[in-house]
Simulated assay, not measured.
Amino acid sequence: MPSPRLWRHPLALAPRALRPWLAARGSLTARLMAHFPDIRVSVLRQGWDQPHTDEIAILRLPRGSSQVAVREVLLASRGTPLVYAHSITARRALTRGFHLLGRTGSRPLGALLFADPTIRRSPLAWRCIDARHPLYQSARAATGPLPPRLWARRSLFHAGRDVLLVTEVFLPALLPAG
C-alpha cells in the first residue's frame, strides 16, 4: 500500500493540461463550474469505514484504528464524470471542527471548507495512482473502465485540532482529447 511520502510525485510528470488542475489551491468545484457547464455533485457514499493504509499515518490515527467518517462523491458535467473525491475524518471531528460534514448532502464540500475563514488548508500533494490503489478501484467502480493510471491530489483541512483529508482523483474527461 502506498505511503504518505509517495504523494509527492513531481508535478512535471503529470500531463501538461492537468497541471493547473492539480496545483490550484482554491475550490476545485468552483474551478470546475468556471470551465464546464452544469456541474453536479453526486454522493456515492457517506458513512463509516476503515481508513486506507496511507490515510492512517496522514491523519495520525492509531494503527488498527476504528472506523472513520467517509464521504465519496462524483463531480460531473452533464453526466460526464470529471472528478472522484474521497474525504475522511476521525469520528470525534464530526462533533467538533467538521460537525457540518454530515449535513452537506449533495452540496460541494468546498462550499463549506472555503467559506469558513478559520479552516486552514495544508500544501497540496499529488501522485499517479493505478489499479492497485483503493481510490483508483473506487473511482473505477463509480465510473466504469479507466486508463491504467490516474492523477490525484490530496490535502488536509484543519479546523482547530480536527483534520479532514480530501483526495481528488482526476478522471479522463477532464482533459481535452488528444
Rank of each mutant, 00 (worst) to 15 (best):
F98T: 03
A111E: 11
P62G: 11
T80P: 07
V169G: 13
A17K: 12
P51R: 00
E72Q: 15
I39N: 10
G97E: 10
R132V: 07
A173R: 00
W7I: 03
L44H: 03
H52C: 15
I88D: 12
L112W: 07
L101P: 05
A34S: 12
P176V: 06
L124K: 05
S27W: 06
H99V: 13
V43N: 05
I58H: 05
T167D: 02
D54T: 02
L165M: 06
R31Q: 06
L94D: 06
R107H: 10
P4N: 07
R78V: 12
V166F: 13
A34H: 07
T95W: 15
G97R: 11
A90K: 07
H158N: 12
L146V: 03
G144C: 07
P148N: 07
P51N: 01
F114V: 04
D49W: 02
L61R: 13
H133Q: 08
H52R: 13
L150W: 09
V169Y: 03
R161Y: 12
T118Y: 14
W126C: 10
W151Q: 02
F36D: 09
F157T: 04
F170N: 00
S87M: 14
Y136T: 00
H158M: 11
L164Y: 09
G79S: 11
D38V: 07
I129Y: 08
L28Q: 01
L6Q: 09
R107E: 08
S106I: 08
A141K: 13
Y84H: 15
I119P: 01
A85L: 08
H133F: 06
R103N: 10
R107F: 03
G144Q: 05
A142T: 04
L32K: 02
R161S: 15
R154Y: 04
R132T: 08
L11D: 00
P123T: 01
P108T: 12
L59G: 09
R161A: 15
A152P: 05
R132P: 08
L32S: 07
L44R: 12
R78I: 14
P51Q: 00
L112T: 07
P145M: 08
L22Y: 03
L109F: 04
I119N: 00
H86C: 13
D38K: 02
P148G: 05
P147G: 01
W151Y: 04
T89D: 08
H133K: 01
R153H: 01
L75V: 05
P172H: 09
L75A: 02
E168L: 06
A30S: 09
V83S: 09
L6W: 11
W151N: 02
